[in-house]
Design a protein around this nucleic acid. Structure first.
Lengths: 345, 345
DNA sequence: AGTAGATATGGGAGCGCTTCCAGATACACT
DNA sequence: AGTGTATCTGGAAGCGCTCCCATATCTACT
């Protein structure tokens, strides 16, 4: 079977390449009779235009890249990355873009992959998942001129479009939930305070107290590092200060906290209520099941793409910075469900 | 800044396009003086050839696709997919290929995405993750002529290259492990027996018995469907037949089985030893920690790519079918670690 | 000095598509 | 019939690269 090209289609339909091209691109100035003839030939031969040639001529590839830097690799152990990818891929399908994936694990990868990403004409735009200490990568991409949207909050936001989840608001709601259930000594195990996420969630904790007109006891704030073990340790220390609730800045840490509480012979949620953050599978595996903050990860991915596409459509313009909300998922560990009021003691 | 092209580079270096191209592609027939001059200009201008134009001229894109059909979406909830992707991406980086991702979730997606995938010149080859009932997709891709490797075992293997993990051997080792620890009433909770994986693991169970010259008691074989709940139910039924060990065809099911055993007041591993399959996070979250079969998922992804690249290099040829081994991860639930010999009762 | 044979060089065509633009055709008027 | 306008049509150039092939240059011979 001879290689199918537009020229061949045109020949078969008895028209010129131009006319055939017009038909394929739904352009005017083609007699409906010819249009039909071309469409029939296309259908019969199952012809599809060569996207590479098309990209070259149009100077746009209809491809966008997703760049995942090495520091994000913790994400491979939680469902964040797959869900994000799913959202992004979904949006790409919808808008007829192709997604290509760049996992940058080593500096060598970076040296190899970055030039490719920024090569003219290869990608129309790029989504970069923010990790830690990736200013360099983001800066390089930013001034390559390639349209870019950052998923997460980059360290420098100047002139950069990004989508972030409102960690302050999420944490605030978590803590507010506990306070409204009548808990009055609400502790927190923070994430690493060298990360934006860790800091934001701590701010949310403080803000909730301020809103309710309650003081924050510094003894009830302990730093963890997002691992279960760090939270287990942290909870051990917290217990000396008799909290009646804990907000852990991640589900994994919440699990660590619950284990610590239980090993001290106390009951969750009766003695100490717990709220986590992320709504990952561990939240359901633990006993009692975990009340937590769910992030709209899939929608987040979609948002990332739609924002990028807007950037593409409208050319260079003021960067867009979108902050998305969260939702609280109430389960057993906060004590809201099992016993109404009885817990307020 | 004017658009950089090969022509421009050639002009700056005072040579022809051809010569410049030769230098960039490490081809002979260029005086070393000229070569250097060109390289210097390239370095100064940070020029990188336009990959799209290159693809068009070379008739190869150096892109491969990863196609994930809708039925694989359970994979989004376990780390299989991220790890596979990681392996694939790693290999792509190494061999200078770009990976593009196609999530085919709906029939509409399929209609939209398939023509794109099979368009001439767009992808050099494709890796298809096998799900359930995807013969159609695989068949379509197969006879589009696009070089293809299937990750997993497709329903029809005729003329198709695929990489699979040896589920029979993995299950066999799991059960052998239990038998060698002296267990004599080893039950199994199988996966859905309408899936290749479910069937293979059951065959492994039987084969282990055959090898040891032991009979299989049909009462000790119960079908689950890979969910925790199905295993919990199954285990309940199994208990009436007094097994002293259980091989569950997935970790999730092993967790269900352990819960059931414990709720009946029995001890794992003393009364009943348990071995799972997959080595997913739940294996570590449960008490006692789970002995299980680990799949080489990342290496699996890499293998998938190297096989595809061989196919690309050597042209159409007999399909390659690779079966990869597994390894057993011994933890507490099988009783091998805590008590040597004491369990043999 | 002359020539075969190797080695360098660059013009030009081609990859498959889009699109400008000039020319052809149709239609409605005076 | 003749002009003007709207509507079609297709040749040709161009997107940025590779590579064939004809030509130019350089060695090492006789």
């Amino acid at each position: 079977m001879t290689q199918l090209t537009l020229k061949e289609i045109a020949r078969l339909a008895g028209v010129s390449r131009t006319t055939a091209s017009r038909v394929l691109n739904d352009q005017p100035h083609v007699r409906s009779e010819l249009r039909e003839r071309v469409l029939r030939v296309v259908a019969e031969t199952r012809y599809h235009p060569n996207p590479v040639a098309r990209s070259l001529a149009l100077q746009e590839s209809r491809m966008i890249g997703l760049v995942v830097p090495r520091s994000v690799h913790s994400f491979f152990s939680d469902p964040y990355f797959p869900r994000l990818t799913q959202g992004i891929a979904e949006a790409c399908n919808q808008y007829d873009y192709t997604l290509s994936l760049f996992l940058v694990q080593t500096p060598q990868d970076e040296a190899k992959v970055l030039p490719k990403i920024t090569s003219r004409g290869f990608l129309d735009g790029v989504v970069v998942q923010v990790g830690q200490m990736e200013d360099h990568l983001i800066a390089t991409l930013a001034d390559s001129g390639l349209p870019m949207v950052v998923a997460g909050r980059p360290e420098i936001t100047e002139g950069i479009s990004f989508i972030d989840v409102d960690n302050v608001e999420g944490a605030r709601n978590a803590v507010l939930h506990l306070l409204k259930l009548g808990r009055r000594r609400v502790a927190t195990i923070t994430g690493g305070l060298n990360t934006a996420v860790g800091l934001d969630r701590k701010v949310g904790y403080e803000r909730a107290h301020a809103e309710m007109g309650l003081p924050c006891d510094p003894a009830l704030i302990v730093e963890g590092d997002f691992t279960e073990n760090s939270a287990y340790q942290a909870m051990g220390r917290l217990l000396q200060h008799h909290p009646d609730a804990v907000f852990a800045a991640s589900d994994i840490m919440a699990v660590g906290a619950i284990h610590a509480i239980q090993h001290h012979g106390l009951n969750v949620p009766r003695d100490i209520a717990v709220v986590g953050y992320d709504d990952l599978p561990p939240a359901l595996m633990v006993t009692p099941t975990l009340t937590t903050i769910r992030q709209p990860v899939r929608r987040f991915g979609i948002q990332t793409v739609t924002t990028l596409l807007e950037l593409l459509k409208n050319g260079p313009q003021p960067p867009r910075q979108v902050i998305m909300g969260t939702e609280i998922v109430v389960r057993e560990s906060c004590g809201a469900i099992l016993a109404e009021g009885a817990n307020i003691s």
